[in-house]
Design a protein around this nucleic acid. Structure first.
Lengths: 128, 128
DNA sequence: CATTGACTTAGAGCGCGCTCAAACCTTTAC
DNA sequence: GTAAAGGTTTGAGCGCGCTCTAAGTCAATG
């Protein structure tokens, strides 16, 4: 019923290793998390949501030092709302640019692949 | 009139350092290139085109070992046409997947940014 | 004829983002 | 009571993709 997770459960859910989760906590990306009586980390749903958002940033190419900046602003409370928004807006522009660039490259790839198809046709006619 | 380039001209044109160009040649990505009487590298237009295509692959996230595989296939001649095409087709699918993933993330970012705008509105009403 | 500047090589060093090793502690199962 | 399964810490190591250093060659310039 309660949604608390061990580190290995979280690892499975986020699809990364427990090592990496501890590493992210060490460098200040994930907040220090609750501990059970045995000293083991206990993750609540809010931790999962925060982690998932960070991983979304990572997946879109944000470098760790910038995620770290965002995490620090968040820890500083509501006075940093505008700054956090601006950071995300800048990142939004970066992601847009990535998409444009990839779309262009997709066209280049398609052209190249077409050329290969043509070359392969010619190859097949070599010996009469 | 003739379009031959020194390494520093090529570096400017490709927007990378001469160091990096030599590095790419060393690891087998760029073909060993012509040399002037003084032993300096001399780049012809075909070298530029090949480099630009490789950089396109790099820009779309292809790791160096795979670019290297492609480069080796190319050096092996026409018998590798199909294999090269398949490599590019696989990469095309990867790029498509990247675009989809980024587009999704863009929506998530937009939601988050909207939420920040709302929170900032509320913040501004705090003191009456 | 010495200096400047652009090139050459081999190889060392570096920043990023993990990834793993070692030593140790708990809880559960037999 | 002991072994296995899972967690803890600190700190070292690693793969990638460059990036830079050192020492040297060569060509043109003052």
């Amino acid at each position: 019923m309660n949604p608390e997770l061990t580190i290995s459960k979280l690892a499975k859910r986020l699809d990364l290793s427990a090592h990496t989760i501890r590493y992210y906590e060490r460098i200040g990306l994930f907040d220090p998390v609750g501990r059970g009586g045995n000293g083991h980390r206990v993750y609540a749903e809010k931790d999962v949501l925060w982690a998932e958002f960070l991983l979304r940033l990572k997946a879109t190419g944000m470098p760790i030092h910038q995620m770290l900046r965002y995490a620090e602003l968040r820890r500083s409370g509501d006075s940093t709302l505008a700054e956090r928004r601006e950071l995300l807006e800048q990142h939004r522009r970066d992601v847009q640019a990535q998409i444009s660039q990839l779309s262009q490259s997709l066209e280049v790839l398609d052209n190249k692949i077409q050329i290969y198809h043509q070359l392969e046709q010619k190859e097949h006619h070599h010996d009469p």
